[in-house]
Simulated scan of single mutants.
Amino acid sequence: MLKLNIKNETAKLKAVVLGIANSVGPTPKVEDCYDPKSKQHVLAGTYPKEADMVAEIDAVATVLEKYNVEVFRPKVIEDYNQIFSRDIAFVIEDKLVKANILPDRDQEIDAINHVLSQIDAKNIIKLPEECHVEGGDVMPWNDYIFVGTYSGEDYPEFITARTNTDAVIALQELFPEKTVKSFELRKDNVNPKENALHLDCCFQPIGKNKAILHKNGFLVEKEYQWLVDFFGKENIFEIDKEEMYNMNSNIFSISEDVIISEKNFTRLNTWLRSKGFIVEEVAYSEIAKQEGLLRCSTMPLIRE
């Protein structure tokens, strides 16, 4: 049996589900894209090729194995995108919460049944239908659970709005001993540089007390300021619009000292090393074209 344990984003990783890029299917039609960045690349003829994405994600598997992490992979579903395993479920403490994601993506959870079957059934939670939530919006951080949301009345009009207020309330009820802190995110169906698809597109805690942050991803300045005060200005790496677009906040922590990052994130990687982190660089720029990066492709199950 797998004994789930996730208290935060950075404790030493023991077991993880890593997405898979085999048989992702043909390039989607523009009208079938879930996010503005994919749409942009479909229109430009630069949508990523399967072989490139398989190579990128396998390089991540190699890094994880180097650090003795047990890596689970989804079973391959023909012609189906299964790269972003973070979206389908997330673990907090010893509970795995199944996400209510876009209906077109339902099969993705079935592809990890071989993992779910190793988890005590009473620790697998399915939220009520009205709770929309995806793992990219949910970040356990010790006594807190940080959640990205969008509560505008025009929520249904945004395919980029993935987590609603009902889900925030449900998480508070599930984990009454934690403080669930929600953040309103900026949504844009058209312009990827104005769209924070998930909380991890504009924020991520790293190490023991540091964070990567992008101010414009937050709709409410006071909420952004809360994070600045919480981590302390000197501990924050603020990314600009271009870096947000390239997913600089979507790196992945193997431990408090070791981070997997994209090799083109020169400014960020230099800063991380200056703060004492070991940075494992991988090429991930093809997968990034679908508005997801390293955190999106990983679903941690056990950290120390």
Results as ranks from 00 to 15, higher is better:
V76P: 05
R267P: 01
A211C: 11
N123V: 04
I169H: 13
L2A: 06
T27P: 00
E291I: 00
V180T: 11
A161E: 08
I6M: 07
H114F: 12
E281Y: 08
Y284T: 11
D79K: 14
K122I: 10
I112Q: 10
E130I: 13
S274H: 07
M139Y: 02
E65R: 15
D200C: 01
L219E: 13
L2T: 04
I112W: 09
L102A: 13
Y150A: 04
T62C: 06
Q82F: 02
G136C: 04
D143Q: 13
A283Q: 11
K233G: 09
H132L: 14
G152I: 09
R295G: 04
A196K: 03
K75V: 11
E129A: 14
M299F: 02
Y224R: 05
N100Q: 12
Q107G: 12
E304M: 09
L102I: 10
L102T: 08
E70N: 14
M139G: 00
V279Y: 00
V133M: 11
K215M: 09
V115A: 08
Q40W: 10
L127Y: 10
K126L: 05
C296S: 08
I254S: 01
N68E: 12
Y245M: 03
I159M: 12
K289N: 10
R303P: 01
Y47W: 15
K14A: 13
P26W: 06
A89F: 10
M244H: 15
L293R: 13
I206Q: 01
V30D: 09
I83N: 08
L2W: 05
P74R: 04
C33D: 04
I239L: 11
V16F: 06
Y284P: 04
I57G: 00
Y284L: 12
E157S: 14
I239C: 13
E243P: 02
G232E: 02
K222N: 12
V91T: 09
D104Q: 15
C296A: 12
Q118R: 15
E9C: 11
R186H: 04
N22Y: 14
N209I: 01
K37P: 01
A15P: 00
Q172H: 06
M244V: 01
N248G: 03
N8M: 07
H132V: 04
I125F: 07
I109L: 15
V279H: 00
I125D: 08
S253V: 00
G19R: 01
L171I: 06
I6G: 02
A51H: 08
D200W: 00
L293S: 15
E108A: 14
A61C: 15
E78A: 15
I112K: 05
N189L: 06
A11G: 07
N250E: 09
D154Q: 07
W226E: 14
Q172C: 06
M53V: 13
I287E: 03
Y144T: 02
T62K: 13
A111E: 02
F90P: 02
E304T: 14
S274I: 01
L272A: 10
L116I: 11
F203T: 05
E184A: 12
M1E: 04
F72P: 08
I20C: 03
M53F: 05
E93C: 08
F277H: 05
K12M: 03
E56V: 09
F84I: 01
T179F: 07
E70C: 09
G152T: 09
V115I: 15
E56I: 05
C201I: 03
K187P: 05
E280D: 09
V76Q: 11
Y34R: 06
D52A: 13
K126E: 12
L102G: 04
S297W: 01
E223F: 00
G45R: 11
E242S: 12
E304A: 11
V76W: 01
